[in-house]
Design a protein around this nucleic acid. Structure first.
Length: 583
DNA sequence: ATAGGGTTAG
């Protein structure tokens, strides 16, 4: 039978713009369906797609005023929650109250979700107050939403208070509290909440707790949970990925590879976990190989996986591949955000294309500390010292908080150009102005800076008085400086001190024997070699990477493992002979 | 109402 209500509902569903809606509106008025709660809430779902029609939507609701409940308003609020401007949901709520509608127990969960999405701590608190006044605090959904909202805003003491005062808690209450701790980076607390649970955990619980184990390196708990899952749960894609990530982030590549191969279904997230894991554990070459394999299978990369791939290109210096990724993003119109933008800036900067790095940097709508760091490190690395120092000033003026990595870039820049006074100033400002404790690397920079400026005594003094033990890099800087200025006495004192520390780091031995060789203390070189053998120290070979046709090749000194070794050496010898002829 | 992947240094 012909039913106008259902016909109109259909047209609302298909409605694309306000012009078409006006025609539907007319029919809604003549048929009296403007007073129908359900139809009106569908109208609101349409309006929620267009933030700019918010007032129109509210006007529409006011027409039906006396005959409508709060259901349509809830729909409108709900429509804005997941959008770009969740604050709009709060404005609609305000108008709802102003127009005399009474919010109900369905209003608050959506409203609180909106507050969570824009971290509206203040708004969340106000909503909490209204909930208490209206006597709705006893509702489980409202309570859980409050926990989520406080958690998302980082206000964990409030989240905990709501949680503690609940008489009946369900699994969502526990999960919401756990997510709150996760968002705040309190992984240990998240795990400890999990162990206090008195209801059966859900898949969502396990996913969160595995994420906590991934992030704080708690392999033991992670394995335990893996065991529980195998015995009692059906693994879905998300949970499988969570387990995979836990193993990868804990460095268990054997387990991870096995799990990856055995996953019944893999999606882009599974690939991202593997590729990111390889980049972050210092295997960028392998990560690019895996990426190529994924492409071979016809899977289209998204912005997130490309961010990791760019990071791999940056550490390998593979400009061709990196540029390809950048062009791929542009050509496919892949939407990229601050993470991806930062990775592009970093890639160009590390590959020496400072111009491109700057161009991308300035074209970005938003920049955070990471973005600035990528650029500043690039500038410092390429000796553009004054550019780096000037940009640092711009950074602080624009209100982006520097972190310890920012200062590492700045101090490196000072070090490269021997700016002792500036270096001292920045080093001091780190703790004074920005509350950042200098770490080993910062002390290393200062020591290097002093050495280069010929302030050897001050350098040694800093190495001796700094709050942590100098590493072999710092010793190397000091010893090199001793050699350069010919301070044999100081050099001997430092070497004796190093040997007392009982290192099993091959770098220390290589360093010491090099220094001895330079000073022609051959007996010492022999003594060190023996010491090295006694302590079972093995030297890891240094390797180089070269990009050919977008593929990264790694090699060591005298390497003959490549299939085309013969040709490679022929070309090398040719280059060498040409070089010698021209000199 | 609760659930997965990404950026800076070393």
């Amino acid at each position: 039978m012909f039913n106008l209500k259902w016909v109109l509902l259909d047209s609302i569903k298909d409605c694309k713009n306000l012009r078409i809606f006006r025609q539907i509106h007319a029919q809604l008025v003549t048929s009296g369906l403007v007073y129908d709660d359900f139809v009106t809430s569908k109208v609101m779902e349409f309006f929620a797609n267009f933030v700019e029609y918010g007032d129109y939507a509210c006007d529409y609701l006011e027409q039906g005023n006396t005959r409508l409940g709060s259901f349509p308003f809830n729909s409108l609020i709900n429509g804005y929650v997941g959008g770009e401007f969740p604050q709009t949901a709060v404005s609609v709520y305000r108008r709802m109250v102003r127009d005399g509608f009474v919010p109900d127990m369905f209003t608050f969960p959506v409203l609180l979700k909106a507050c969570s999405n824009f971290s509206g701590s203040r708004e969340g608190r106000q909503v909490h107050g209204v909930v208490v006044k209206l006597g709705l605090l006893a509702d489980l959904y409202v309570q859980n939403s409050l926990i989520r909202c406080y958690g998302a805003c980082g206000d964990l003491s409030c989240a905990g208070k709501v949680f503690d005062e609940m008489v009946v808690r369900d699994v969502v209450s526990w999960n919401s509290l756990i997510s709150g701790f996760m968002k705040a980076g309190h992984f240990d607390e998240a795990i400890s909440v999990f162990f206090r649970m008195d209801v059966e955990p859900s898949i969502a619980t396990l996913v969160s707790v595995l994420a906590a184990c991934a992030r704080n390196g708690n392999l033991c708990t992670g394995k335990g949970i893996h065991g529980v899952i195998e015995r009692r749960f059906k693994v879905n894609l998300v949970l499988g990925n969570a387990m995979l990530d836990m193993y990868v982030k804990n460095g268990c590549f054997y387990e991870a590879k096995k799990m990856f191969d055995e996953l019944p279904t893999r999606d882009i997230v599974s690939w991202t976990i593997m590729i990111t894991g390889l980049v972050q554990s210092d295997h960028p070459k392998e990560s690019l190989e895996l990426f190529s394999m994924m492409r071979t299978l016809g899977i289209s990369p998204d912005a997130i996986i490309l961010t990791s791939v760019l990071s791999a290109c940056a550490s390998l210096g593979t400009l061709d591949f990196g540029t390809w990724v950048h062009e791929y993003i542009n050509q496919r119109g892949i939407k990229w955000d601050i993470h991806t933008g930062t990775a592009i800036v970093d890639m160009y900067a590390k590959c020496g294309c400072i111009e491109m790095a700057l161009q991308i940097f300035y074209s970005m709508p938003q920049r955070n500390t990471f973005t600035w760091n990528a650029l500043l490190c690039g500038l410092a690395m390429h000796g553009l010292v004054h550019e780096a120092l000037d940009l640092f000033e711009v950074m602080t003026i624009s209100g982006v908080e520097p972190n310890e990595i920012t200062f590492l870039a700045i101090l490196t820049a000072c070090c490269h150009s021997g700016l002792v006074d500036e270096g001292r100033k920045y080093f001091e400002n780190m703790s004074k102005l920005y509350n950042l404790l200098p770490k080993l690397e910062h002390y290393g920079c200062m020591i290097d800076l002093f050495c280069r400026a010929g302030l050897l005594e001050e350098a040694v003094e800093l190495a001796r008085t700094m709050p942590m033990k100098p590493d072999m890099l710092i010793w190397g800087v000091l010893l090199n400086a001793c050699t350069t200025v010919g301070n044999v006495e100081l050099s001997h004192r430092i070497q004796d001190y190093i040997l007392e520390l009982d290192h099993d780091d091959s770098g220390v031995f290589v360093l010491l024997s090099n220094i001895s060789a330079i000073n022609q203390r051959w007996s010492n070189v022999t003594r060190l070699r023996r010491l090295m053998k006694d302590r079972g120290v093995k030297k890891a070979p240094g390797s180089s990477v070269i990009e050919v046709d977008g593929k990264a090749h790694e090699f060591v000194v005298g390497d003959i493992s490549h299939l085309q070794t013969e040709e490679i050496y022929k070309v090398l010898n040719l280059i060498n002979s040409v070089y010698h002829e021209s000199h």
